[in-house]
Simulated scan of single mutants.
Amino acid sequence: MQTSLDIQYIFELFPYLLKYLSVTMGMAIWGFVLALIFSVTIAIIRVFKITVLAQLCALFISFFRGTPLLVQLFLLYYGLPRFFPIFEGLDAFTAAVIGLSLHFSAYMAESIRAAIMGVDKSQMEACLSIGMTRSQAMRRIILPQASRVATPSLMNYFIDMIKSTSLAFTLGVTEIMAVSQMEAASSFKFFESFLAVAFIYWAVVVFFTRIQYLLERYLNRAY
C-alpha cells in the first residue's frame, strides 16, 4: 500500500486536467449569463409587485433555494424528458448550464432586489417628475446604482458556480472533476488526483477573486 505522496504524478496530471478547464469555465460563464438575465427579470417583477408574476417568482425562488442543486440537475436531465418529449434531446452540458442558471438565479434575484430596494426612493420620484417612465428610470438610473451594490455578491455567486460545475460529472459531462475521477480510478492515486483538481479550482477562484477586487474598485471610484 502506497503511503507517500507522488508529487511527480500531480504535476504530470495538471496539463491533462487543464485541457478540460474550458468545459468547466464554459458551463460557469454561460450559466452565469443566463442566471443574470433570469435574476434581473425576477427582481424587477418582485420590486414592482406585478400581480401573479410576483407570486410565481416567489414560488420559483422558494423551490430553487429550498432544494439541493444535485437534485435539480437530476430532475432536469433525467426527470423532465419522461414527461416532456421536448427535453429528450437535451445533452448533458446544456442541462448542466440550465440547472446552474436556474439554481443561482434564485439567489442572485434576491441580491439584486435588495440592491434595487437600497436605492433611495427619491431617485425614482425625481425620474418620474421629469417625464421618465418607470422602465426608463429603472434602466438609466436605478439599475446602474444598484449594480455597484450587487456586484460583490454576484461575483461571489459566480465563484460558487464555478465550484458547483463539479456536480456536472454526475450527468456525464467530461469536465475537470470527471477527468480527475477517471484518472484516480485508473491509477488508484485518489489523493493525488483530487489534490491536483483542488489546486486548479483554487487557482481559478483566486484569479476571479482578484478580478472582483479590481471591478469593485472601478465601480467605487466615484465614491
Rank of each mutant, 00 (worst) to 15 (best):
Q2A: 09
Q2W: 12
T3F: 14
L5M: 14
Q8N: 14
Q8H: 13
Q8R: 14
I10F: 04
E12F: 01
L17Y: 05
L18Y: 13
K19E: 10
S22I: 05
V23T: 11
A28K: 07
I29L: 15
W30Q: 08
G31S: 08
F32S: 07
V33R: 05
A35E: 06
L36C: 12
I37Q: 02
I37E: 02
F38M: 15
T41I: 04
T41G: 10
A43N: 10
I44E: 03
I44P: 09
I45M: 02
R46E: 10
V47Y: 13
F48M: 13
K49S: 11
I50L: 08
T51W: 05
A54Q: 09
A54H: 06
Q55S: 15
Q55F: 12
L56P: 00
L56E: 08
L59R: 09
F60I: 12
I61T: 06
S62E: 15
F64N: 02
G66E: 10
P68F: 06
V71I: 15
V71A: 15
L73C: 02
L73G: 03
L75K: 10
L75D: 15
Y78A: 07
Y78H: 00
Y78F: 08
F83Q: 03
F84L: 04
F84I: 06
P85F: 11
E88N: 15
D91W: 10
F93N: 13
T94Y: 09
A95L: 01
A96P: 04
G99A: 05
L100H: 01
L100M: 13
F104C: 15
S105D: 06
A106H: 06
M108G: 04
S111A: 11
I112G: 04
A114G: 14
I116L: 13
V119L: 09
D120V: 11
K121P: 11
S122C: 09
S122T: 09
M124V: 09
E125M: 07
T133D: 05
Q136V: 00
A137S: 14
R139S: 13
I141A: 09
L143D: 00
S147Y: 07
A150D: 01
A150V: 02
T151A: 13
P152K: 07
P152Y: 08
L154G: 03
N156T: 15
N156D: 14
Y157W: 08
F158K: 08
I159S: 08
D160E: 12
D160P: 00
M161E: 05
M161S: 01
T165D: 01
S166H: 06
F169W: 03
F169L: 02
L171W: 01
L171S: 03
V173I: 06
V173G: 04
V173Q: 02
I176H: 03
I176T: 00
A178N: 08
A178F: 01
V179N: 01
S180H: 04
Q181W: 11
M182E: 02
A185W: 12
S186L: 15
F191Y: 03
A196W: 00
V197M: 11
F199I: 00
Y201P: 02
A203V: 01
V206D: 04
F208R: 03
T209E: 12
I211T: 06
Q212N: 10
L215D: 12
L215A: 11
E216I: 04
R217T: 08
L219I: 02
L219P: 01
R221N: 10
R221P: 06
A222W: 15
A222P: 03
Y223V: 08
